[in-house]
């Protein structure tokens, strides 16, 4: 695998979306390519920041209640 191919697979490697064969080839490449390995780790960190720091709001109870009422008053 060359760097171009590794970059094409990089996001899928971060997200666990590679096939077993792709995963093995990707791992073999980053084991010997410092640039691709660094880029892979940076992408992992970026994903972690987004996952951990973007706040998840709870839907207001008034909205939940209105959705429940909606199913009780609407005929599909």
């Amino acid at each position: 695998m060359n760097c171009k191919k590794a970059q094409a697979l990089l996001s899928a490697a971060v997200d666990g979306e590679l096939s077993l064969k792709e995963q093995q080839e990707f791992e073999a490449h980053i084991a010997k390519c410092a640039d691709c390995q660094r880029e892979f780790r940076e992408a992992q960190k970026t994903k972690n920041i987004i996952r951990e720091k973007i706040v998840r709001f709870k839907a207001p109870q008034s909205l939940v209640n209105s959705i429940i009422r909606l199913t009780e008053t609407t005929t599909g």
Binding site: Q7, A8, L9, L10, S11, A12, E17, A43
Partner: peptide, 8 residues
């Protein structure tokens, strides 16, 4: 895949 790569 490519949008995720470039976006990140």
């Amino acid at each position: 895949r490519s949008r995720l790569y470039r976006g990140r």
